[in-house]
Computed example of a mutant assay.
Amino acid sequence: MPTDLSRRGLLRLGALSTMALAGTESLISQATPAAPASGAVYLNLNENAFGPSPRVQPAIQQALSQLNRYATADLAAQFTQQVAAYENVSPDQVILGEILGGLGLHLSSTGGPGGEFLYSTPGYLALIDAAAQLGGVGVPVPLNAAGANDLPALQERIGPKTRAVYLINPHNPTGVLNEASAFQSFLRNASQRAPVIVDEAYLEYSTDFRTRSAVTLVREGANVLVFRTFDKIHGLAGLPIGYTLGPKALIATLKQQGLEDAEGLGRLNLAAASAALADPDHIPRVRSTVAAERETWNGVLRDLRLKHTPSAANFVFFDAGRPHDEVAGSMRQQGVVVARAFPPYSTWVRITIGTPQQNAAAQQALRRALA
Rank of each mutant, 00 (worst) to 15 (best):
residue 91 P to D: 10
residue 39 G to W: 05
residue 50 F to T: 03
residue 117 F to M: 06
residue 98 E to F: 00
residue 125 L to Q: 13
residue 147 G to Y: 04
residue 135 G to W: 08
residue 93 Q to S: 11
residue 134 L to G: 09
residue 53 S to M: 08
residue 75 L to E: 15
residue 66 Q to W: 13
residue 131 A to K: 08
residue 36 P to F: 08
residue 75 L to T: 13
residue 65 S to A: 12
residue 64 L to H: 04
residue 37 A to Y: 09
residue 121 T to M: 10
residue 163 R to M: 00
residue 52 P to K: 05
residue 38 S to F: 01
residue 56 V to S: 01
residue 37 A to T: 13
residue 113 P to C: 08
residue 50 F to G: 01
residue 49 A to Y: 05
residue 142 P to M: 07
residue 87 E to K: 12
residue 37 A to S: 14
residue 152 P to D: 12
residue 122 P to D: 04
residue 46 N to D: 15
residue 67 L to Y: 10
residue 84 A to Q: 07
residue 40 A to C: 03
residue 84 A to N: 09
residue 158 I to K: 09
residue 50 F to M: 01
residue 146 A to P: 02
residue 128 I to G: 03
residue 43 L to W: 10
residue 94 V to L: 02
residue 94 V to F: 02
residue 59 A to C: 01
residue 45 L to Y: 13
residue 72 T to N: 03
residue 67 L to D: 04
residue 126 A to G: 07
residue 151 L to A: 01
residue 132 A to W: 08
residue 81 Q to A: 14
residue 158 I to L: 03
residue 140 P to V: 01
residue 39 G to P: 10
residue 96 L to W: 10
residue 100 L to E: 15
residue 33 P to A: 01
residue 64 L to F: 02
residue 132 A to C: 02
residue 96 L to T: 09
residue 37 A to L: 11
residue 71 A to S: 14
residue 101 G to I: 05
residue 69 R to G: 02
residue 83 V to Q: 04
residue 117 F to Q: 07
residue 46 N to I: 12
residue 71 A to C: 11
residue 41 V to T: 15
residue 142 P to R: 10
residue 122 P to T: 02
residue 114 G to N: 09
residue 110 T to V: 11
residue 51 G to T: 01
residue 53 S to I: 04
residue 65 S to Y: 12
residue 134 L to F: 13
residue 114 G to V: 04
residue 79 F to A: 01
residue 148 A to Y: 08
residue 113 P to T: 08
residue 111 G to E: 09
residue 140 P to T: 05
residue 123 G to P: 10
residue 139 V to P: 01
residue 149 N to S: 14
residue 112 G to A: 06
residue 51 G to L: 00
residue 136 G to Q: 07
residue 110 T to L: 08
residue 58 P to Y: 10
residue 142 P to D: 03
residue 77 A to L: 11
residue 92 D to Y: 02
residue 62 Q to Y: 05
residue 115 G to A: 12
residue 71 A to W: 10
residue 73 A to P: 06
residue 73 A to G: 06
residue 90 S to N: 14
residue 70 Y to G: 06
residue 77 A to D: 15
residue 140 P to W: 09
residue 115 G to F: 04
residue 158 I to D: 03
residue 125 L to T: 14
residue 133 Q to H: 13
residue 70 Y to C: 02
residue 53 S to Q: 06
residue 50 F to W: 03
residue 154 L to R: 13
residue 79 F to G: 04
residue 148 A to G: 13
residue 33 P to W: 05
residue 34 A to H: 15
residue 48 N to K: 11
residue 72 T to E: 05
residue 38 S to C: 12
residue 117 F to I: 11
residue 80 T to I: 05
residue 58 P to C: 04
residue 74 D to M: 03
residue 88 N to I: 09
residue 91 P to K: 12
residue 113 P to K: 09
residue 139 V to H: 12
residue 137 V to W: 03
residue 104 G to P: 07
residue 133 Q to Y: 13
residue 54 P to F: 04
residue 85 A to H: 14
residue 64 L to E: 02
residue 160 P to Q: 08
residue 61 Q to G: 14
